[in-house]
Simulated scan of single mutants.
Amino acid sequence: MQALVISSPGHAEIIEVPVPVPAVGEVAIDLAFVGYCGSDLTSYRGLNPLVSYPRVPGHEIAGTIASLGSGVEGLSIGETVTVLPYFNCGKCRACRAGRPNACLYNQTMGVQREGAMTARVVVPRDKVLPIGGVRLRDAALIEPCSVGFHAVNRAQIERGETVVVLGCGMIGLGALMGSLRRGATVIAVDVSPEKLEVAKKLGAASIICTADGDVSAQIAAILPEGPDVVIEAVGTTATFLQAVDIVGQCGRIVYIGYAKHPVEYDTKQFITKELDIRGSRNAMRSDFDDVIAWLTEHPEAGDLIVSATVSLADAPTALARWDSQPGSFTKILVRLAPLD
Rank of each mutant, 00 (worst) to 15 (best):
I29K: 04
S43W: 02
V27P: 02
L47R: 12
S43L: 13
R45S: 02
S39M: 06
G46L: 04
D40I: 11
G25F: 01
A62R: 04
L47W: 04
S52Q: 15
E60D: 13
R55E: 11
P54E: 05
G35I: 13
Y44W: 14
D40K: 02
G46C: 09
Y44M: 05
A32H: 09
A62K: 02
H59D: 00
V34Q: 01
G25W: 06
I29V: 15
I61W: 11
P54S: 09
I29G: 00
D30K: 05
V51Q: 03
P57F: 14
S39V: 09
S43E: 09
D40A: 03
A32S: 14
V34H: 01
L50I: 11
P57E: 06
R55C: 13
L41F: 10
D40V: 09
L31F: 04
S52E: 14
V56Y: 04
R55F: 12
P54I: 10
P49L: 07
D40W: 11
L41A: 11
E60C: 07
L31V: 05
E60F: 06
Y36S: 10
S52G: 09
P54Q: 11
S43R: 03
I61C: 09
S43Q: 13
L41N: 07
Y44R: 02
N48A: 11
Y53I: 07
G38W: 13
G35Q: 06
L31Q: 03
G38T: 12
S52R: 13
H59M: 00
E60S: 07
Y53S: 00
G58V: 12
I29D: 01
P57T: 12
V27S: 03
